[in-house]
Computed example of a mutant assay.
Amino acid sequence: MKEVTVQELKHKIDHQEDFQLIDVREPFEYEMSNIDGENIPLAGLVVEASKVSKDKPVIMQCRSGARSAAAVMQLEQLGYTNLYNLKGGILAWAAEYDPDMQVY
């Protein structure tokens, strides 16, 4: 499975690269803290797969990287080849870039 670090994600954001960020956590988690990804909870991801781009890199993100890894695996079974897991999830982002972010 391909992964990106929070440093690589920050670089992409800072340089306005064309990619899609999808947060697969539940809505209540997303409301607590997020990094502006599109919220598509893991439980509904396959049903909502049409919202996931096939023509640019897609970074899947969750709290720690476990659910987003599961999301990558689910979508790869549907033929997606442009997916990346955010290593360490929002916990790694908060530790590296936003220590005041509310995490759980």
Rank of each mutant, 00 (worst) to 15 (best):
I40A: 01
P41A: 04
E38M: 13
R63M: 02
A69E: 11
P57S: 02
D36F: 10
M60P: 02
C62R: 13
M60L: 15
S68I: 07
G44V: 00
Q74S: 12
A69N: 04
A66I: 11
V46L: 15
A71C: 13
L45F: 13
K51D: 01
P41G: 00
D36M: 13
I59E: 09
P57M: 00
A71H: 08
E76R: 06
V52A: 06
Q61F: 02
A71M: 08
G79N: 06
E48F: 04
A69D: 04
M60A: 01
S68R: 05
P41W: 00
V52S: 03
K56Y: 11
Q77Y: 10
N39H: 00
L42C: 05
S68W: 05
L78Q: 08
V46N: 13
G79P: 09
Q77A: 07
V46M: 09
S68A: 14
G37W: 04
S53H: 05
A49F: 00
P57A: 07
V58M: 02
S50R: 10
E76V: 10
Q74C: 07
V72I: 07
D36P: 02
E76S: 03
S50F: 12
D55S: 15
D36E: 09
N39V: 02
E38S: 10
N39L: 04
L75R: 01
S68C: 14
M60Q: 10
S50A: 09
R63W: 05
A66V: 13
L75T: 03
R67Y: 00
I59P: 10
V47Y: 13
G65A: 08
A70D: 12
A71P: 03
Q77P: 04
V72M: 12
D55Q: 10
S53L: 08
L45P: 09
I40D: 03
Q77G: 07
Q74W: 11
K56A: 05
I40C: 12
P41I: 00
S53E: 10
V72Y: 00
N34K: 03
C62S: 12
R67I: 01
V47N: 15
G44D: 08
P41E: 04
A49H: 14
